[in-house]
Amino acid sequence: MAAVMRYRTAGYNGYSIEYSPFFENRIACASAANFGIVGNGRLWVLGLGAGPEGIDVEKVYDTQDGLFDCAWSEVHENQIVTSSGDGSIKLWDVTLPDFPVRNWSEHTREVFAVKWNLVKKDTFISGSWDQTIKLWNPEVPQSLTTWQEHTHCIYQTAWSPTSGDIFASASGDHTLKVWDVRQPRSVQTVRAHNAEILALDWNKYHPNTLVTGSVDHSVKVWDLRFPDREAMVLLGHDYAVRRVKCSPHSGNIIASASYDMTMRIWDTAMGGNRLAHVHDQHTEFVLGVDMSMFFEGQVATCAWDEQINVIQIPGLSMKH
């Protein structure tokens, strides 16, 4: 296995890590001091392939409260949106120092999810512990739409990779909901776990397939056409699953990050338990994971151990 590239987010615990959709060597990490319980947040913009351990800092931006998620703009190579513990959403221009170029303060509680629209690239959504989901346009000072239907914290949202109007949300109310931005109510509700759902992503190759991760330790694969039961259960994590990502390169590769301090790669085309790889070099909860769009098999993780690791998963890059 190739050497691990590392960076230490000193003083800040990683919550979310995202590859730039424009630059193959750029990643961003949303982090929070004091494990996100209290204190400041910091957005790190990092360059791969530089620095003593393979990753070097390009920019940092500090915020009053912890940052829990971030999403690169799909239309502007220099812009990235963050979501924060104080309910605020900020848009940053990484060519500028210190302060954001936009700030929205509509959510009344922690915002754990922010996701940029993959098709209609002028909008993004946010999901909050205030139980609402909001749709935003970076040029508009207020949210475009607000949906309130979940009965518990919203932990994650995900856009359909093929429709600019369809997205999904995962909540502490044990449900996964599918939404159409043109509809005032959700279009589908799936009781996906018997516990809080913390993680969600949309399969990039199968438009009916979503993946959830839960406090019940499991990762589940869902086919929305058969919502009465999961298509697959991936078991192996010893604690809650905090983030899942579907591979940009393959319809059967899933990455999951867990409180059990591991990041796991699953191959749903494999037999047995479908576990393809375990990254166990973090020493505390792993909260963020993302897969490179440009280098198949390259995966970045961030964790409460203040460590960012970028690794090459053995075997995954060989396919193309």
């Binding site: 494990f35 996100g36 319980i37 209290v38 513990g85 922690e110 512990w129 914290c153 516990a195 809080e196 913390l198 406090v215 019940d216 330790h217 499991s218 604690y239 809650a240 905090r242 409180y259």
Partner: peptide, 20 residues
């Protein structure tokens, strides 16, 4: 208080009874 709330929320992620 937000900090206490966050601690409680994260604690529930870790104390839930998993399957039998």
């Amino acid at each position: 208080m937000a900090a206490q709330h966050r601690i409680e929320q994260i604690s529930t992620h870790l104390t839930i009874r998993p399957g039998t």
